[in-house]
Computed example of a mutant assay.
Amino acid sequence: MFRPQLPPERLREVVRTADAAGLEELWLWEDCFLESGIATAAAALAWSERLRVGVGLLPVPLRNVALTSMEAATLHRLFPGRVALGVGHGVQAWMGQVGARVESPLTLLREHLTAMRALLAGERVTVDGRYVKLDGVALDWPPATAPSVLAGATGPRSLRLTGEAADGTILDAAVPPDGVRKARGLIDEGRTAAGRTGRHEIVVYLHTATGPGAEGRLGAELERSGGASTPGLGVAGDAGTVAKAVQRLVEAGAHTVVLQPTADEPDPEGFVRFVAEEVRPLVPRLP
């Protein structure tokens, strides 16, 4: 993960390092008031040849669904097979700070997901929802194949919603392996209720630190994020130790594990090489 606590001008070197090292995926955030997810994703995709770039996540209260879908469609057409976009509630305090907080974030996310998936599938959409209102809107340049739309979630109702209305779920770094199992159960409840079948990608972030002072940096990160008292959260150590932590999340139901460096990671490019060259070979590939 390229954390937006780094200035945007650092992204190019991290991307080039990731591409050269053979890293499979690089993930980005759109946190207020740091960096745009779409702008950074477009740059990362353009600066790389094979890297899959994920954005987790775009806060829907900030975004008209037509605009989000236009941006998503453009990226998917320019870089087919290399884009993963997630949407979500956003941090409610931040949404209030910019005058975008809504009374029912769950309703907004459901309406946004339904409309966005339809638009990206090339449909003409008319809807008069509580928050999403479209009158005969269709994308002139939809992707050649309807892409997956992921959604971030934490609470039970939101997790069930991602099973119902999204193609995958993003879980943040506050979720240990036991939490992934519980989340997977709630997601499956939503999928069953909606009659959804097929693959539903589970993306999980993992607090990760390596090198000198790793345990101290991880501990400070967990304190800042409020996760210091959660058993099994985060990992600090060498490649073998990190790979075992990744595998525990995979066994709990994750398909993609994104290693999230600490905000004060002293060598972001070195962290990317560590993940690609030392950790990845120790983790079996999912079928």
Results as ranks from 00 to 15, higher is better:
H200T: 02
W141I: 05
G226V: 05
R217F: 02
K182E: 15
T208L: 01
T230F: 10
L218V: 13
E251Q: 11
E269N: 11
H200D: 00
E269A: 15
D267F: 06
G232C: 11
T162W: 02
T169L: 02
T162Q: 07
V258H: 01
R199Y: 01
W141T: 15
V242K: 09
G240M: 04
L249Q: 10
L233M: 06
W141A: 15
G163M: 03
V175I: 15
E251D: 15
A239D: 13
A214P: 07
G234K: 07
L139C: 09
G227V: 15
V250W: 02
R157L: 06
L222Q: 14
R224V: 12
E265I: 10
G179T: 12
V257E: 03
G155K: 12
G226D: 13
H207C: 00
A146S: 13
D178C: 00
T230K: 13
G190I: 01
G213H: 12
V203E: 10
G179F: 03
G152L: 01
A214S: 12
T241D: 05
A220D: 14
G168C: 05
T208F: 00
R196K: 10
D167S: 05
D172E: 06
P177C: 11
G232V: 15
R248F: 01
L139N: 12
W141C: 12
A236F: 08
